[in-house]
Each structure stands twice: as structure tokens, then as C-alpha cells.
Nucleic acid binder design. Structure first.
Length: 831
DNA sequence: GGTGGCGTTTTACC
DNA sequence: ACAGGTAAAACGCCACC
């Protein structure tokens, strides 16, 4: 017997004599690697029909006990059956807890349970690891005091400890959570970042020229190419095979908790595996000597995820995409841009070419480039680790799974790990046909107010705090609280138009577990925010962020076709309430004597009309006193000026396109080309400057002068290539495009010239002058590397002037008439 | 051969 | 396929005169 402290990092399981055993890899407080072997009850639920008498239940139990399975080379049977009072979708039910030997048999047992008296079979599709965490209460990245027998070359479980590179292997007997306190320092993980460079981009097609590894006080580039100067981090080997061997050697020697790459699920790890297979080199990176395995689960864009036993392989890009992308400034998820935003550092300059064309002295730059990619990846992991850690603690799924999950899984995991509090049996995942049906229904979304174009002064803006989530909580909306028929004393949705008919949906007043959990998230977020204000550090901030994201995804989850707790009725009702509350707020603000300028989903912007800020705050208080439940309106800010413009065609105001300036001079620009990456920098920066000049002192003449300067520069060809480059994302394979737009042409050109498309799939091009007169833009597309002069007419008439023309129209200035020479043949011009 | 409506595509807002 | 709907805008495509 031994007692130690322990934090679980990675979970998997193995079979021994037909039974499942969880194998948890973690650390103790001294940083020693500890492996814990444990088991848990394996079972599924059979939910019984309402009116089943005792005798029938008894017979059913006897019948189930007789089930024998002979599948996949295993012979097993139902071990035990118990009758329990449970809840399923908020309803009291009687359910049979059916115990089996092996988790993998549960599906087959469920298939045998299609019996009279059994309504539903549930709880067999969670996956062993999730099931184990729920059952055992041993959650990732928490601290436990554990007690058990040491397995030291014991030969138990077929000698599992003998082949495992851990300091201590324990067969668990007892465990106790020792801290659940945010002040407890988290564990400092051992990290190794890696990156490869190869000749060909297609996986396994070319040779791997070099691999870089970066850890704490550890920097290495392994290569079989010769350095020009002496570089102490370069380890020269004889060939690619030895490179792979040395890579494995170093990873095993450092033995990190996390092997971290950037887009490494889609490139680095599969490439290493492919080359190792080709060269017959074992890539035994696992703690148990196993090779990386690839799973298609969670595969976006047809890529799998790479798993290494005992060492958590992390592809940072996916985590950043899920948890950060919506709050980031970066326009792509490229390592370069993300590093620049979060680390203030970027990739080293290196112009790719085939290895046969790289000159002797250029190799040193390539090594440095390769090393620096790992340096950046290492830095990013350090930066994001506190957040990743808090997400793991909150949703209670292992780091590996969290790092590959999308927002729906975050929410769903949180639910699944908290169902016990409600004595709830988990709902199953939707079947293929259900997903198809769900994808076919559309629901009407939020209301967007049509603004009147103009320049306004003294504007106030209100918005609802976590609007969708507070609606879910206030009106108890969810799958399980939805009532098929109206009951007295129930919540009622506003009127909804569906398929041309007006309907209303009704929800029980008895608090449902989903709204209750969302309320919990809502409150925990509030508390985390207060904790952060009191004690600002990375952990309190990370926790606040985690709950913020979970809270923001609540409605998205309910409306997501893949969700276990998907509900069309709840989603449609949530959105109907969103429209109702926004419209009501707009009416009330107008009634209070203010002209409303704009509103989108959860916000309303209006003129202060000589009222003081204190008056506006009083109005806010009054509006809040009239709101039900946890609904809350807050003051977004006061603005000194705001600009709304017309849509490109016509005279109606453009929604979602405005610019505001705060009392502190800070700009808030929404929707304008300034924030869109598919416009060239020149047009974006010009527009930004014009907006700035106009909002700062409301003087359009200064802005017009500035425009004149830029137009002159364009006409005199003084604009740099980079400024006129247009960047657009290629969203699918080139062949799949029906419409051949300019960026598709550019992508085709790149393919023909063998220029690799960046990991971010961003296509860059510019519009050039052509000898013959061509009308289509795509016929004038050139790659940034190509020779040619930019097309003055295009940049003037299709980029510069469109970016600013409707801003000047607010002041009655027609910039096209001033600058473009030609008259536009728009209808408006003849009136 | 110009043009106007429509479908496709990308990107942003909340 | 892997959180949702609303909206702006550009461009190609195609019928039409």
C-alpha cells in the first residue's frame, strides 16, 4: 500500500480478462509520473414504460439476466440488474441499471433490449473515459490523495507496468479530492513543442528535411543537411531514417506531458508516421512503446487526430479556433498571425524552395526558421495553458479531448458531467436520420433595426447581458421542459411563424436541469468575474473566460443538430423572446423621448437628446425593474458621435455597418470594409482614416482633402504592391467551385506554378492592367509575385471610391463625380 | 454588347 | 458535421433586348 498525491492528465483504458481498466497518466506534486489503474461499474439504463407492474418488472429483469453475448471474440453476459427511480428528460421514471463486463458490449446489449416494457435504452454511448470520469469522480487536472498497491514488475494485468515508462504505477484502492481551490497552484506541465520541414506538402510524399524540438532549456534541430556556420542547436545525422530515430530518442528522453504542434494533426504527426512507415523506423513515442494512432473522430476537413499513448499530443490550432478565434484580431489562424497577436513575435523570414535549390549558406536560415516555429508554438502553449487548464477543470474532459473539441462539445461535456446532481439519465446522441431532419429546419433569428443614415451626436447604447442564456434561464426553455400541450401555469413563448402558421410553444414551470445548469454557469461566471476583479491573475481570468464562453454558447448548443439536448421548439422560442425583448426595449426607449438609431439582436443605440448621463442611467434602472427573471440590460457606453451609412445600392440604411467614437476618443467600427480582410489594405486604411477624421471633429472637408491625396498617389502608381493585395480564403477544393471568382483563378495559378497554399488557405492576388480590354475582374488577376502594374481604374473605382463614397454621401458629397471622370449610369444619377 | 436579376461566395455582427 | 441566424457586398452567370 502506498499513499500519494496525484493529478490526472491523460486517460485511456485497456481490457484484461474481458474487463475494462482505466489507465490514468498523471503527476504527483514532486513532478514524478504516476500511472493509476482503476476500474468502475459498467452499465447502461433501460427506461421502463409508465404502467409496468411489479410482476412484469420482475419478469423483465429475469429475462435480461439471461442475456448472453458471443461477439468480437468475447463471451459475456449481463452481470446484474437493479431497479432505480431516476429522471429522464426531467420526468420521473423507473429504470433498470444493467451491469455488464465490458463497455464495448453495451451497444450489443442495448440491441437485445428491444423488449416490450422497455421504452428507451440510454447511457451506453458516452465513451469509456467519460463514463469512467462520471463514475469515479476522478476528474482531469484536479488534485487527489490516492491510496493503492504499487505494481512493480508484478506481472499483474499482463505485466502492464513493465512496459510503461512511469515512475510509479498504482492499482487504485481509495481516492479523495484534496483541493478545489483556485488558489492552489496548478501543476507545471513539461512541454515539448515540435515542427517539421519537408520538400513536399502532400503527406509523406517528400523527405522530412529537419525537425525542431523546443522545451524548457531545450532547443534542437535535427537534420541531415549540413549547416554552413556552427549552430549549437543543430544536430546533424546521416539520413532521414536516423533523423526519425533521433526525434523519437529526444522525445522519449525529455518525456513531456504534452507534445505540442501547430496544425500537427493535419501535417507534422501524420508526415512523421508516413515517413517512419516508409523507412521502416518504429515511431514508438508512446509511454508503452506504442506508435501514434489516428482517429477520424472530430475530423474537420477530412483530417484525423493523432494520439500518442501517455503523452498528450496537442494540436494548438484547434483549441485556438474553438476558444479564441471569435475574440481575436488576427484574420487567419496561421502560426505567424496568432503569434504576432499573442506573443508579439512572428515567424522568421524564409523563402521556401525545393531543397535541391537551396544554397549552402541558406540552410542556416532554414534551420533557424524551423527552430523558431517550435519556439512560437512553445510560447503559445505557455500563453494558453492556464485557459486550457481551466476549461478542462470546468468541462471535466481530458486535455486531449478538450483540445480537439468544438463549442458544442464543451457545453455537452459540462452537462454530462453534471447530470448526477439531477438524478438524470443521459440522453443519447442523435441518429444519422435525425441529424438530417434537424438540418433541414430553419428558425427565424434575431431582429435588426434599420438605421437612418447620418452623422449623429451624443449617443447612448444599451445591451442585454448574455441575452440568450438569460432567456433560457428566465423562461425555463429546453428540450426536457417543453410541453407537447399547453398546461395551465406554464411558460408561453411569443407567437412564432412557422411554415406560414402562427404557433406558440409551452414550457413547464418546474425548473429543468438544462436551464438550471445554464443558471449555474451564469452565476459561476459572475462569481469568477468578481474573483478576477478582486484578485487579478491568469487563473481567475482563465476561469472567468471559460464560463463566459460556455455561457455564450448555450443557445447555439440547443439549436445545434448534433446535440443530445437539441430542441427546435426551445430554439425557436429563445429567438422569439430575443426579438420580443429587443423590440420592447426599442419602444420603451422611444417612449422615453429618445430617437432610436440602431439595434441588433440584443442592443439598442439612441440619441441622448439633451438628457444627462445620470438621466440615461435612471432610464436603464427603470427598464431593468420591468424585466423578468435574470434578464438584465446594461449600459454599453456613451458616444460623442456616430456614423451610419446607406447600403451600396439604394438609399436605405445599411444594418450592421456603423462607426462610433467614445468620449475617450476610442473608435468602435463595425461592418465597414475597414474590418473586412477581403478588401485591400489601401482601401481599408483609407476608410479608417476618413472615418476617424469625420468622427473626431465632424469635419468632412479635411477628410475629402485626404482622399484627394490618396487618389493622386494611386493615379501616379505610388502605391506598394502589398497595399493593393487582396486576400481571400479558399473555402473548399478548387474543383468544387461553381462560380469562378478572382480568388479561385489566383488559386489555380498557384497550383499551376507549384506555389503552396498556406495552412490558413489564404489566397493573395492583385488586379493588374491588361493589354487587351477585358471586362471580367478574374481576367486581370495576378499573383503578388508576378510582374505587372496594378490596374488604376479597378483600384479607384472598385476599391478606393466604394470604400468611402457612402460616407461622403452623408454630407451630400458625391466622390465618384469628383474623382472618377466617368459618370455612373446608376438610376439615381438621372433623377 | 450592355444590363439587370439571380445565385454563389466570403466575411462580418451579435 | 461537429454553436446559431442576419446581413452586406462582390462577382460570375445568363437571359434578354
Amino acid at each position: 500500500m502506498i499513499t500519494t498525491d496525484f493529478t490526472p492528465i491523460d486517460y485511456d483504458y485497456f481490457d484484461f480478462e474481458g474487463r475494462n481498466y482505466a489507465r490514468i497518466i498523471g503527476r504527483d506534486k514532486q513532478g514524478k509520473r504516476v500511472c493509476v489503474i482503476d476500474s468502475c461499474p459498467i452499465y447502461l439504463w433501460a427506461i421502463l414504460s409508465d404502467k409496468l407492474n411489479e410482476k412484469k418488472i420482475k419478469n423483465l429483469i429475469e429475462e435480461i439476466k439471461e442475456i448472453r453475448l458471443d461477439i468480437k471474440g468475447r463471451q459475456t453476459n449481463v452481470e446484474k440488474v437493479e431497479l432505480h427511480d431516476k429522471n429522464f428528460l426531467g420526468k420521473k421514471v423507473q429504470a433498470l441499471k444493467i451491469f455488464a463486463t465490458n463497455y464495448k458490449d453495451l451497444h450489443d446489449i442495448a440491441d437485445r433490449l428491444v423488449l416490450p416494457g422497455i421504452e428507451n435504452r440510454r447511457g451506453y454511448d458516452l465513451g469509456f473515459v467519460t463514463h469512467y470520469i462520471v463514475e469515479s469522480g476522478i476528474s482531469p487536472l484536479q488534485w487527489y490523495k490516492i491510496e493503492g498497491d504499487v505494481l512493480d514488475n508484478s506481472g499483474e494485468f499482463g505485466g502492464i507496468d513493465q512496459n510503461l515508462d512511469s515512475d510509479l504505477t498504482i492499482r487504485l484502492q481509495k481516492h479523495k479530492k484534496i483541493v478545489d481551490d483556485i488558489k492552489e497552484p496548478g501543476f507545471a506541465p513539461k512541454i515539448l513543442a515540435y515542427d517539421i520541414e519537408s520538400d513536399e506538402f502532400q503527406i509523406g510524399k517528400g523527405e522530412i528535411l529537419m525537425v525542431s524540438l523546443v522545451g524548457e532549456n531545450f532547443k534542437k534541430v535535427i537534420t541531415f543537411k549540413k549547416p554552413h556556420k556552427k549552430l549549437d542547436y543543430v544536430e546533424v545525422v546521416k539520413d532521414e531514417a536516423e533523423l526519425l530515430e533521433r526525434f523519437v530518442h529526444h522525445v522519449r528522453k525529455v518525456s513531456p506531458d504534452f507534445l505540442v504542434g501547430y496544425f500537427s494533426d493535419g501535417f507534422d504527426l501524420p508526415y512523421l508516421k508516413a515517413r517512419a512507415t516508409h523507412l521502416k523506423i518504429p515511431l514508438n513515442l508512446g509511454l508503452d512503446d506504442s506508435q501514434p494512432r489516428f482517429f477520424r473522430a472530430g475530423a474537420g476537413k477530412g483530417l484525423g487526430t493523432g494520439k500518442i499513448s501517455g503523452i498528450v499530443h496537442i494540436d494548438l490550432m484547434k483549441f485556438i479556433q474553438t476558444a479564441y478565434a471569435q475574440y481575436m484580431q488576427s484574420e487567419t489562424l496561421s502560426l505567424n498571425e496568432v503569434s504576432r497577436e499573442f506573443l508579439g513575435d512572428s515567424k522568421k523570414d524564409f523563402k521556401f524552395k525545393h531543397s535541391s535549390k537551396i544554397k549552402k549558406e541558406e540552410w542556416d536560415d532554414y534551420f533557424e526558421y524551423n527552430l523558431h516555429d517550435s519556439v512560437l508554438t512553445y510560447g503559445l502553449f505557455q500563453k494558453f495553458w492556464p485557459d486550457m487548464q481551466e476549461f478542462v477543470r470546468v468541462i471535466q474532459e481530458p486535455v486531449f479531448d478538450l483540445s480537439r473539441a468544438g463549442l458544442s462539445r464543451y457545453t455537452e461535456s459540462y452537462i454530462l458531467h453534471n447530470l448526477d446532481k439531477f438524478n438524470e439519465i443521459p440522453e443519447r446522441r442523435p441518429k444519422y436520420e435525425e441529424i438530417g431532419e434537424r438540418r433541414n429546419v430553419r428558425v427565424e433569428g434575431a431582429f435588426v433595426f434599420e438605421p437612418t443614415p447620418g452623422l449623429y451626436e451624443n449617443i447612448a447604447m444599451f445591451d442585454f447581458t448574455s441575452m440568450h442564456t438569460s432567456i433560457i434561464v428566465t423562461h425555463n426553455l429546453s428540450k426536457s421542459t417543453f410541453l407537447k400541450k399547453k398546461e395551465k401555469n406554464s411558460y408561453e413563448s411569443p407567437e412564432i411563424t412557422e411554415k406560414g402558421k402562427k404557433v406558440k410553444y409551452y414550457f413547464s414551470k418546474k425548473p429543468g436541469f438544462f436551464p438550471e445548469l445554464m443558471k449555474e454557469i451564469f452565476e459561476l461566471r459572475k462569481k469568477a468575474k468578481e474573483d478576477y476583479k478582486k484578485n487579478p491573475n491568469i487563473t481567475t481570468k482563465a476561469r472567468s473566460n471559460a464560463f463566459k464562453l460556455l455561457s455564450a454558447s448555450a443557445h447555439g448548443y440547443v439549436a445545434f443538430f448534433g446535440a443530445r439536448y437539441y430542441s427546435h421548439e426551445a430554439s425557436a422560442s429563445i429567438l422569439a423572446f430575443v426579438r420580443k425583448y429587443n423590440k420592447e426595449t426599442i419602444e420603451k426607449v422611444e417612449k422615453a423621448g429618445h430617437k432610436v438609431i440602431f439595434g441588433d439582436t440584443d442592443s439598442v443605440a439612441f440619441l441622448m437628446n439633451n438628457k444627462t448621463e445620470a438621466d440615461i442611467k435612471k432610464l436603464l434602472e427603470k427598464l431593468n425593474s420591468e424585466l423578468p427573471g435574470i434578464m438584465q440590460l446594461e449600459l454599453e457606453d456613451f458616444f460623442t458621435r456616430g456614423l451610419w451609412v446607406t447600403r451600396r445600392t439604394g438609399t436605405i440604411g445599411a444594418k450592421k455597418k456603423y462607426a462610433l467614437i467614445g468620449k475617450d476618443g476610442k473608435l468602435k467600427i463595425r461592418g465597414f470594409e475597414t474590418v473586412r480582410r477581403d478588401w485591400c489594405h489601401l482601401a481599408r486604411e483609407l476608410q479608417n482614416k476618413i472615418i476617424r477624421l469625420i468622427l473626431k471633429d465632424g469635419n468632412e472637408i479635411q477628410a475629402l482633402k485626404y482622399l484627394k491625396e490618396i487618389v493622386k498617389k494611386v493615379k501616379q502608381r505610388e502605391i506598394a504592391r502589398d497595399e493593393i493585395t487582396i486576400r481571400t480564403m479558399l473555402q473548399k477544393p478548387i474543383e468544387d467551385y461553381k462560380a469562378i471568382s478572382p480568388h479561385v483563378i489566383a488559386a489555380k495559378k498557384m497550383k499551376a506554378l507549384g506555389i503552396p497554399i498556406s495552412g490558413a488557405n489564404l489566397i493573395e492576388y492583385f488586379v493588374a492592367e491588361t493589354r487587351e480590354k477585358k471586362s471580367l475582374v478574374r481576367e486581370k488577376v495576378k499573383l503578388p509575385e508576378e510582374k505587372g502594374e496594378y490596374n488604376i481604374e479597378y483600384y479607384l473605382n472598385r476599391q478606393i471610391l466604394p470604400a468611402v463614397e457612402n460616407i461622403f454621401q452623408v454630407f451630400g458629397i458625391e466622390v465618384r463625380e469628383i474623382f472618377s471622370g466617368k459618370k455612373q449610369t446608376k438610376l439615381g444619377d438621372f433623377k
